[in-house]
Design a protein around this nucleic acid. Structure first.
Lengths: 349, 349
DNA sequence: CCCGCATCTGACAACGTTGTCCAGGCTCTA
DNA sequence: TAGAGCCTGGACAACGTTGTCAGATGCGGG
């Protein structure tokens, strides 16, 4: 009694709510299983009349191919994973969209998740995506050790890191010129006469933050200005503490006359602080901000092209998948200094 | 010769780049297939010694369970689909993140895509997600006919629509009070003495746009102000045309003294136009905008809580999946008028 | 010393699809 | 009209996993 066995093996609640399968369609259309498969996949070798019958059965039953089974058989999932830091950060919006557009052009879906800057969560997410057998991964890394990816890379999972490089493994990377951008931004302030320039940035364990700090130091050193510790605030990230850091720099007996901010969120907070401040303090921020041009003064920024980062990374990913891309490489995209006023204020002392 | 058959059936390039399977792990550990499965899934009934051997083999081979096969067998994918309009729109960032957080709390991954406001693309995406057998869908609809979802709903795919209602089917919906919000925003302008109030909004075929327009009309009617056609601009959406629309309203011999804008993108463009304008024109916008408080004047908005929309929708989705949610319902979240200056300007004529 | 029981392990089928391969029917030609 | 060749359709195995069930092993008690 094979039927009994079969029923016994079924789950109680009935999976997929009893979706029809190709077998059901075949039975209804009075054809073989494989014929249904051919119709569904548009393969040749089916007479129009048969095709019509099959199509009718499909519509009547509301059949939809089960891609899990298909993936199992074919080995490709036509999906890629995107791991970023925070879906809600405006910097990642255009980046995600660019990745999605490239994926779409290649017929792939996008599965994504946020690491919230937590290395464990990054790893967990990446491995979950690998278990789903995504064809490739675009990762904005939170951690700095990615050796856990070695078996995956060996198994042929295409991988591109964006915004920050991978740690301890050799992988494709697409980043902005964080060092050069920050250096130019700070040099811009120096060129406008500033010497006491503050720096407020994220934790130096984040690669981009470290690079921007390095750019700040380089610009100062190039100008022969010794940097005082009280001018730098590293690792503060929540608005309350950023605000306090900025206020301390400005309250110093020898206050900074300009501030360089290390990312968009810090910039926004510092703008708020400066708005309450009577003395004009110059500001250059890393990352562009919406409406920055409408503030008075307009906010001068070092802009990176988030969409280009995403697009470049995704394109490299698919080139890995075609096999047209061979060795891992590091691509660095230029940044652009956008002057709008706040960076051109003269020192007020 | 079963081996020959097997090899002949293999694809040439070798799928997944030859990832090890449980069978391989079992062979290496010298145990049965099912024992490996037990270890991988943390099922009881394995001696510590056996478990150690299996774990060793797993690590040595870099084995990772293939979730496609697992899904095929178990029927649940532990993933949900999110279809929205544009990943890069700042309004959807917090919404996506909220959905992701709820999904994560339920151990599910998020697959998402953008419809770009195109109904066909929405349908294509939704059906692709259904073919992947996502457990549920959160949809910000672009189209207004969702009967194509009927077989899916019948098959038990949990579905919640957000931001805009579903068309032609009975489904769970979570929306903001677009009508009431717009009415209150316009009434606010009226209360400050305005009578000639312009409205610039998106295409009325988009539900939210239509509701906000209705709110505008209601407020005007309540105040006994007849609306002139030249005060309304509907369906313009790209910045160039929004700009032109705003300029025309302001160049009229009897110009509007205030403008109500129908969404965040329109608001931003109109802010730009007004910034170039000498005469003070009042502005209230639908949707909040970052830095709106720092502009002079600050921008008065009708804010909706995007994160709450996403969270509410996702929670309802998972309640559908638990079975604790029975009938589809419509949830309407309140909006909030945030006064910052631009909406309180008096008429300038 | 043997039996019963509990514990651990493995063989096997099934999930829904696709690739392979063969059978049967048809057309076309000699 | 018979034979060769083509075209359509279907049976079957396999993808990698998990549920079922039965067999093996070890232990304690009678």
């Amino acid at each position: 009694m094979p039927d009994t066995t079969r029923r016994a093996n079924r789950l109680p609640g009935n999976r997929y709510g009893n979706r029809p399968t190709m077998k059901d369609v075949a039975a209804r259309a009075g054809v073989g299983l494989k014929t249904v498969s051919r119709v569904v996949n548009g393969e040749p070798g089916v007479t129009p009349e048969t095709e019509r019958r099959v199509q009718e059965a499909i519509d009547a039953l509301g059949f939809r191919r089960n891609d899990s089974a298909r993936v199992l058989r074919k080995g490709r999932t036509a999906s890629i994973g995107l791991v970023l830091e925070d879906l809600a950060d405006p910097f990642y919006g255009p980046l995600s969209r660019a990745v999605e557009e490239v994926a779409r052009a290649h017929g792939a879906l996008l599965i994504n998740g946020s690491s919230a800057e937590d290395p464990d969560r990054e790893q967990e997410l990446v491995l979950a995506l690998c278990a789903r057998r995504v064809d490739g991964l675009v990762v904005i890394p939170a951690g700095d050790d990615h050796r856990y990816l070695e078996p995956e890379l060996k198994a042929g999972v295409a991988t591109v890191f964006v915004d920050r490089p991978a740690g301890q493994i050799d992988a494709d990377v697409v980043v902005s010129d964080n060092f050069g951008g920050a250096r130019d931004g700070v040099a811009h302030l120096i060129a406008h006469g500033h010497r006491r320039i503050g720096f407020i940035g994220d934790m130096p364990r984040i690669h981009t933050a470290a690079e921007r700090l390095r750019g700040y130091r380089a610009a100062m050193e190039d100008a022969g200005i010794p940097v005082e510790d009280s001018w730098m605030s590293l690792g503060v990230t929540d608005p309350v503490r950023v605000r306090r850091a900025a206020e301390e720099m400005l309250a110093d007996p020898q206050p900074v006359t300009a501030i360089f901010t290390g990312n968009n969120r810090v910039t926004v907070t510092v703008i708020r602080v400066l708005a309450e401040h009577t003395r004009g303090v110059a500001l250059v921020g890393f990352d562009d901000i919406e409406l920055a041009d409408l503030l008075r003064p307009g906010v001068t920024v070092v802009a990176q092209d988030a969409a280009a980062l995403g697009r470049t990374a995704a394109e490299r990913l698919f080139r890995q998948l075609d096999g047209t891309l061979l060795a891992p490489d590091r691509i660095e995209l230029p940044t652009r200094l956008v002057t709008r006023g706040s960076g051109e204020l003269p020192p007020s002392d």
